[in-house]
């Protein structure tokens, strides 16, 4: 059962994912093209809140979009986004956050950036692109191979975001411990913090 703190975390993280889509992303190389940080927000939801709360916060964000708020990157929103060719990616979002969260919980506390990046790639890219490509193929009337080629354009950017998301998750877990369960290491001292 979700406690009130979980509900608060889910609601606030939906806000964070929205903010990452609305705030023009800080471009690392000074390019004018704003790279949207929103797909990074999906990975962060799982990497910071874990599987269940992460997936629910993404689901809440999608519900807010459906009821008419323009919270997707570039101010898109409303029901239209759910009938276009990229609907599969939206369906894949909560799944991606869930997979990232599951893998992150396996890593445990203290968070490890390299393993975290691998979790983000497996969940935030692999688990996301499967429904994404299927959706593109169904709505766009494409074969799976053409749909894959069309979607592949975004993979390099997403790889960079997966690494960046792991670095950010590392920073957040260091500053705000207790969101993911402690790792049962042979060497680890008994854990005092149980927040």
């Amino acid at each position: 059962m979700l406690k009130s703190r979980d509900l608060a975390l889910i609601a606030i993280f939906a806000g964070i994912i929205a903010a990452l889509g609305l705030v023009p992303a800080v471009s690392p190389f000074g390019i004018a093209v704003p790279i949207t940080a929103q797909s990074m927000g999906i990975m962060l939801a799982g990497a910071i809140l874990g599987a269940k709360r992460g997936a629910l916060s993404v689901l809440l964000l999608l519900a807010l979009v459906a009821v008419g708020l323009p919270l997707l990157a570039g101010g898109r929103g409303g029901l239209g986004v759910f009938v276009g060719p990229s609907v599969g990616f939206l369906i894949g979002w909560p799944i991606a956050a869930w997979v990232v969260g599951l893998l992150t919980e396996r890593i445990g506390r203290p968070y490890r950036v390299v393993q975290g990046a691998i979790a983000n790639i497996l969940g935030g890219i692999l688990a996301l692109y499967v429904p994404g490509i299927i959706g593109m193929s169904v709505v766009g009337g494409l074969g799976l191979i053409e749909a894959t080629t069309t979607s592949a354009v975004f993979i390099p950017g997403d790889l960079a975001k997966a690494v960046l998301a792991a670095v950010i998750a590392g920073g957040v877990h260091a500053a705000y411990p207790g969101l993911i369960p402690a790792r049962r290491d042979r060497s680890a001292a008994p854990d005092r913090v149980s927040a």
Binding site: L9, I12, S27
Partner: peptide, 15 residues
């Protein structure tokens, strides 16, 4: 120019 210096404090404050 640091996305990390933006996202980490934003998320921690939000949490």
């Amino acid at each position: 120019a640091s996305p990390r210096a933006f996202a980490v404090p934003l998320i921690v404050r939000s949490l």
